[in-house]
């Protein structure tokens, strides 16, 4: 059991579809402020008595983006998560990267995890490329020494050496993406959570990114990779999980899972 990297147990995420109406919103605001501390207490009581979340909410008003998802990922595995839009892939990744909280179930992460949930996270348009490398690196969880160590490599990879001291607002979107990806791909966490990062940039740069990611994976790091790009998934992952409507359809060898997904969606 010691080689486990991620364990997800009966994970669920519920969204509220109810939009607050005018009159209610004011009341809700007041309730929010006044009752916040008491609600915390009462949830402790409720939990103690019913051992659940209390009342079961009306299902019309809620939407389960993720329901009853359980999986285990071992160290060094590269796992692709596929599924059509709204299947719950990004929600799963957001929960695992601690951005969003689950509604039920739990997840355990063994080791330092880093996430790339979209390129360019934390870039500030007014700052130069050099400054943004440090800022974005820190936001993604790198220590300053780590960034210093990788700085030249990041710059070389991004191919923007000439514009290091130019504010990135003057960059083309392609340059922005290259710089952002270069920072993110030089993260050194044991577990890497990636969402759709390859959906950007030209083909040559895509190819370069894919190679870099393969290199990362071959170093024995665990990678969880969400994408719509079946080619990238097949090339890169040795296991895939197909999600649909917030549930796991199948989980297994990449080829098998991808072909099943293609049959269901295009067949």
């Amino acid at each position: 059991m010691s080689d486990i990297a991620i364990r997800v147990v009966r994970l669920g995420k519920r969204f509220n579809l109810d939009r607050p109406r005018r009159g209610n919103a004011t009341r809700e605001l007041l309730e929010d402020v006044v009752r916040a501390p008491f609600r915390s207490l009462s949830s402790i009581f409720r939990q103690g008595i019913f051992n659940s979340n209390g009342r079961q909410p009306n299902n019309d008003k809620y939407f389960w983006a993720l329901k009853d998802v359980s999986l285990e990922i071992r160290q060094g595995e590269t796992v692709g998560i596929i599924g059509s839009n709204g299947a719950g892939k990004s929600v799963l990744l957001k929960i695992l990267s601690r951005v969003s909280k689950p509604t039920e179930g739990y997840a355990e992460i063994y080791g330092k995890a880093g996430s790339m949930l979209e390129v360019g996270t934390g870039f500030h348009p007014e700052l130069t490329a050099r400054e943004n490398i440090y800022l974005s690196g820190a936001i993604l969880g790198m220590k300053k020494a780590e960034i210093n160590r990788n700085f030249d490599e990041i710059v070389a990879f991004s191919e923007v050496e000439k514009f290091l001291d130019t504010p990135v607002k003057h960059f083309s979107s392609g340059m922005n993406v290259r710089l952002a990806f270069s920072v993110a791909v030089h993260l050194e966490p044991e577990i890497m959570l990636m969402d759709e990062v390859l959906a950007v940039g030209d083909n040559a740069f895509k190819e370069k990114c894919l190679n870099k990611m393969k290199e990362v994976a071959s170093e024995g790091r665990t990678v969880l990779f969400v994408s719509h790009d079946m080619k990238a998934i097949e090339e890169f992952c040795n296991r895939a999980i197909y999600l649909s409507n917030g549930k796991i359809v199948i989980d297994g060898e990449t080829e098998k899972v991808v072909s099943q997904y293609l049959v269901k969606n295009h067949g």
Binding site: S40, S43, I44, T103, Y106, A107, E108, Y110, A113
Partner: peptide, 22 residues
């Protein structure tokens, strides 16, 4: 809600639904 412990020298983070006083 979130706990950091150690398991065989590695940090283990448990992600749970928020409950009670955070």
């Amino acid at each position: 809600t979130t706990t950091a412990n150690f398991y065989e020298g590695k940090p283990v983070i448990t992600i749970r639904p928020p409950k009670g006083l955070v």
